[in-house]
Simulated scan of single mutants.
Amino acid sequence: MALKRTVTGTSNAKIILIGDHSVVYHQPAIALPLPSVTTRVNLTSTKVGQQLNSRYFDGPLTEMGQNLSGTAKLIQTLLNRFDATEVPFEMTIASDLPAERGMGSSAAVAVAVTRAMYQFFDRPLNRELLLATAAIAEKITHGHPSGIDAATVSSHAPIWFIPGHESLQIPFNLPGYLVIADSGVKGQTGKAVAAVARRKTTMPQTTNEQIETLGHLTTETRATLASADLDRLGTILTAAQHELKGLGVSSPELDKLTHVACANGALGAKLTGGGMGGCLISLCADWETTQRVQQALTDAGATQTWIEAFETEEEH
Rank of each mutant, 00 (worst) to 15 (best):
223 A>T: 10
299 D>K: 01
245 K>Y: 09
297 L>A: 00
261 A>L: 01
263 A>M: 14
270 K>S: 14
283 L>K: 03
298 T>S: 03
236 I>T: 11
255 D>M: 01
269 A>W: 03
257 L>N: 11
269 A>V: 04
254 L>E: 10
299 D>G: 02
261 A>G: 07
290 T>Y: 02
241 Q>T: 07
238 T>F: 01
253 E>D: 14
240 A>L: 02
239 A>I: 04
247 L>A: 05
244 L>W: 14
277 G>Y: 08
270 K>F: 01
250 S>W: 01
231 D>T: 09
274 G>D: 12
288 E>Q: 15
300 A>D: 15
220 E>C: 10
296 A>C: 01
255 D>Q: 08
231 D>R: 02
283 L>W: 03
272 T>G: 14
288 E>T: 11
268 G>Q: 05
224 T>G: 11
248 G>I: 06
260 V>F: 00
273 G>C: 10
263 A>T: 07
286 D>S: 15
285 A>K: 13
273 G>F: 03
259 H>K: 05
220 E>D: 15
296 A>I: 00
246 G>I: 09
237 L>W: 03
275 G>S: 08
300 A>W: 01
261 A>K: 02
283 L>G: 14
277 G>N: 14
289 T>P: 12
265 G>I: 03
258 T>S: 15
252 P>K: 13
257 L>Q: 15
276 M>W: 13
235 T>L: 07
219 T>E: 15
270 K>W: 02
249 V>W: 15
282 S>I: 08
238 T>R: 01
229 D>P: 14
251 S>F: 04
247 L>T: 10
240 A>Y: 05
247 L>F: 02
272 T>R: 04
274 G>S: 13
286 D>G: 07
288 E>K: 06
225 L>T: 08
237 L>P: 15
223 A>D: 13
231 D>M: 06
247 L>S: 15
269 A>C: 10
241 Q>P: 09
255 D>E: 13
275 G>A: 06
301 G>P: 05
250 S>I: 01
238 T>L: 02
286 D>I: 14
287 W>K: 06
234 G>K: 09
267 L>Q: 15
237 L>V: 04
246 G>S: 15
224 T>V: 05
233 L>D: 08
235 T>F: 04
235 T>N: 05
285 A>F: 05
246 G>Q: 12
243 E>R: 07
258 T>I: 05
280 L>D: 07
258 T>V: 12
280 L>F: 06
239 A>F: 02
294 Q>V: 00
286 D>T: 07
269 A>L: 02
298 T>N: 02
266 A>D: 05
